[in-house]
């Protein structure tokens, strides 16, 4: 049943640059993919672990900044990726140790503060980050000798990473670890009583989430070849959370749909509608009112209801 749409979706994604006319839309598709990776990363915490983070743009940005600094220092691209992801993981670990002292509102507030610290550093530590003039890099990496300079090849590279992210999420959700993460969300005290180390499970989920946020940040850097403090601003964290919530928390497809919605509204709709912010806001209100659990679960529920009422009626 579900194999066919999956295969179809894969074929559409894989061949997209071939039939999509104009590189502009291929670039938009690349953006959707790396923002989807980011949203998937945020979803691990916000969805499966029930820990709403408003500081993930900090992790996204750390990867982008670390990558940018490493490239300007003259390192090769494979080393750059290692440095960027290591920096993200270390930062994620520090974030986790501090933020996991609380849950619920406390967790949200600590992550906001941590994200703002990263923003402050990016904005004010000018000797390192070049302040709001940002860091510009030249060139994209050449994995296995393949140039990623063209929009098409960059799209395919992003797609490979995206599929890896999606696969890792699928494995994560089905794994005992994934189940225990959801357990700490629903019944932390019972999980504790059952002998699970709740704090450690949350900590590892935080690292997993941070890792994919960092990967997305690195792709962002290579895509834009530029990083500036706007990337780590609070609004960027909120936007990632909106992607997750509008698409559907704790689902695999939800963050992807949410990322597509936000990127398309921001880039495509803004060309036709001046008040696109307003439209985006209105769409979120509609989603919250009519599909409070997000677009994907909402649509599934709608389809089920339609089918049962058709068959039953």
């Amino acid at each position: 049943m579900t194999r066919l749409p999956l295969a179809l979706g894969f074929v559409v994604l894989a061949t997209l640059p071939l039939w999509m006319p104009g590189t502009y839309y291929v670039n938009i598709a690349s953006q959707i993919l790396f923002y989807a990776i980011f949203a998937l990363g945020v979803n691990v915490l916000a969805g499966y672990a029930g820990l709403v983070s408003l500081g993930h743009a900090g992790l996204f940005g750390i990867a982008a900044y670390a990558g940018g600094k490493a490239i300007t220092a003259g390192y090769g691209h494979s080393v750059v990726a290692v440095i960027a992801l290591a920096a993200t993981l270390v930062t994620a670990a520090v974030f986790a140790v501090l933020a996991l002292r609380g849950t619920g509102l406390g967790f949200v507030m600590i992550t906001v503060a941590l994200g703002q610290i990263v923003w402050g550093v990016a904005y004010r530590w000018i000797s390192i980050t070049n302040g709001d003039n940002g860091i510009t890099i030249t060139g994209r990496p050449m994995p296995f000798g393949l140039s990623l300079a063209s929009p098409r090849s960059f799209y395919w590279a992003t797609l490979v990473v995206f599929l890896a992210a999606l696969a890792s999420m699928t494995v994560f959700v089905a794994s005992p670890f994934g189940a225990s993460v959801q357990g700490t969300r629903d019944q932390p005290r019972r999980m504790n009583a059952l002998g699970y180390h709740v704090w450690m499970i949350r900590f590892l989920a935080f690292l997993f989430s941070g890792f994919w946020s960092g990967v997305a940040g690195l792709l962002y850097l290579y895509y834009n070849q530029f990083v500036s403090p706007q990337v780590v601003a609070l609004t960027a964290s909120a936007e990632a959370l909106l992607m997750v919530i509008s698409g559907g928390t704790a689902t695999l497809l939800g963050p992807i749909v949410g990322a597509a919605l936000v990127v398309v509204m921001k880039n495509v709709a803004s060309a036709y509608i001046e008040r696109w912010n307003f439209v985006l806001g209105a769409i979120f209100v509609v989603i919250v009112v009519f599909m409070p659990d997000g677009l994907v679960p909402g649509t599934v529920r709608l389809a089920r209801w339609a089918r049962s009422s058709l068959l039953g009626g």
């Binding site: 979706g9 997209l16 999509m20 104009g22 839309y25 919605l261 398309v264």
Partner: peptide
């Protein structure tokens, strides 16, 4: 979602 974008993109892009 992706399909809808593609169709619109297709028209404008063509």
């Amino acid at each position: 979602m992706a399909l809808r974008l593609d169709r619109r993109g297709f028209l404008v892009g063509t």
